[in-house]
Design a protein around this nucleic acid. Structure first.
Lengths: 339, 339
DNA sequence: TTGAAAGCGCTAACAG
DNA sequence: CTGTTAGCGCTTTCAA
């Protein structure tokens, strides 16, 4: 094995000076003579010295690690956001530690604890679909440990958040449907305690109103966020005495599942039923028909979340730092009726 | 801010004993009296004590962090492998630090350095598509720092690897095409210095031979792994005086791009051109027609890679530890001609 | 049965 | 201009 990293001490010994001299020289402290500084820096480069972050961390009580908790890591939406976070983290010389809650409340609680034990400096979190109780985040808030929520957030905790404007997005979807002649517009939602479900419902209702359509409760079905349950929800809609002529899903996963189920029952998209998704996964353009969807600026969401995080670190966060990003309706074939 | 974590010292002060006593009690050292041990452990639990990993790391010279380098994090293939790695890492009480090379050699080199600076205990790596030179890994090998490659690997370095059996897989694809009446079977490959491209070519050639077909160089085109270049490669195939009647892509990203291009030119899949992908991304079942593909046991690949990693850590690795996993051809509609 | 002290790598206050 | 020292949290001899 052997020694893998050399230390200040190694350098100091080799040059016959003290450790602190080396330390100072390396940061160009004016106290050290030009020539010595040069010699020391030279040797450091030769030996490929790099400071031991553990020692630094211990001393400064900081690890330069950000904990990220996402419902899952395999969805493009989240991994793209993670990329965005990473890009900012790297600029600040921080590392990210990623953990997945697998959409489980229990695992989320456990994960928070673990990351704290690992001494991350703070957390950037998207809540699991099961999470209704937020007390596991209290400890962070009380100790003013940096905490940022994105996408699925909890406003009661007074924590900075980054979200996409689901109200406007859902309103636009609804109006888009209406413009295409749809009158029975259905919404497959997630659990209503999630802000994303609620916001999109809000926009859905506003949209209906603006279009002069009445809200029909049987056209709003809830499901958990699994493809299986989304299929079930779709089936439920398709069993209605009068079919819906449009469906929009809380996200693309749900929309894809709905698409499969609609096809399975031999209805035509968009002519029998128009379909719109949400979050614009990469494959929206590959499915048949191509899926109309709401794009999220995921990369940017990640970046904004990371920026808020560093504002927390620097201690100049306003509790009112609630960033809401615009989305865009990308119209493809799944929602445009040929008439 | 205040103190966020309590230390042995805190506990010791509170009980009026020495730090070392507390330390020993917490690990049930027989020297400490039963009653004291109990009292100490009780307080530790109350105060929610957890050892400071930085201090431990500094002392033991280990960080319990594994560095992972993947070409990108947003592809399901990689994120799923990462999940697999994480599951094993967690069992061993290790954390993973994920970095992406973005398919760039330069960034890969830089990333290796950064992770080493961060004192990860070793690396689990999938090479970038540009990487032909492996000297940035020499340092690890020389210092026997644990290093494991998966999927895109370098055999010359004598490092343990986990791969999928691309030869057999590509052979099966070729034979599957032939069974469906295809005679002009094309292969859109990646750069040939990548083992995955080479292996699949090998299998492709074997398959042709077994089917009594001759290899036609114009039916093998290379592209870098971007959708854009894959489209270009597809176009090239579609410009041939005689069309291919089957195409298999190095991976699903390429296959999806090929699918788009084929559709754009108004050819029918599978009847004009049969299509098969590789790696079985989630959306294979949603595209139209559903995409025949080779599934990789990605989760398992990650797990195996992590297990090899810990064998390295424990020092009982054989240089011959080369794990090759079986794949499976999942036949869907894109490759079955109606005749 | 318990405590004191050294040391992991580093910085910073304090002495020369 | 440079060296000494203390201390971050912990384990581990060595002493008592």
């Amino acid at each position: 094995m052997g020694k893998r990293h050399i230390s200040l001490k190694d350098l100091a010994n080799e040059l016959g000076v003290s450790i602190s001299t080396v330390s100072r020289a390396l940061k160009n402290h004016p106290d050290i003579s030009q020539s010595l500084t040069k010699r020391i820096q030279q040797l450091a480069k030769e030996r490929n010295y790099s400071p031991n972050p553990l020692a630094m961390g211990l001393l400064k009580q900081q690890t330069r690690m950000i904990g990220i908790i996402v419902p899952d890591i395999v969805t493009h939406f989240y991994s793209s956001i993670i990329s965005g976070i990473e890009s900012i983290a790297k600029q600040h010389g921080y590392y990210i530690v990623i953990a997945s809650s697998n959409e489980s409340y229990e695992k989320e609680v456990e994960t928070v604890e673990n990351l704290l034990k690992a001494r991350v400096e703070g957390l950037i979190v998207c809540l699991s679909q099961e999470t209704k109780d937020y007390s596991h985040f209290n400890k962070l808030v009380e100790n003013s440990i940096p905490l940022v929520f994105f996408d699925r957030v909890c406003h009661s905790l007074n924590v900075p958040t980054v979200t996409a404007d689901g109200v406007v997005a859902a309103k636009n979807i609804t109006k888009h449907f209406h413009k295409n002649g749809c009158k029975r517009i259905a919404y497959i939602s997630g659990p209503m305690y999630l802000n994303i479900s609620k916001n999109r419902k809000e926009g859905y209702l506003q949209g209906l109103k603006e279009c002069g359509l009445e809200f029909n409760p049987e056209l709003l079905v809830e499901c958990n966020l699994s493809p299986e349950d989304a299929s079930r929800a779709t089936e439920q809609l398709l069993k209605l005495p009068v079919l819906p002529d449009a469906i929009f899903g809380l996200n693309d996963t749900i929309a894809f599942a709905a698409m499969k189920e609609i096809k399975r029952q031999n209805y035509k998209i968009p002519d029998d039923i128009a379909l719109v998704g949400f979050t614009d996964e990469f494959h929206s353009t590959v499915v048949e028909p191509t899926l109309t969807s709401i794009t999220h600026p995921t990369w940017q969401m990640g970046q904004e979340a990371a920026k808020l995080f560093f504002k927390c670190i620097d201690g100049n966060i306003k509790t009112s730092d609630q960033i809401v990003l615009e989305t865009e309706l990308i119209i493809r074939r799944s929602s445009v009726k040929k008439r």
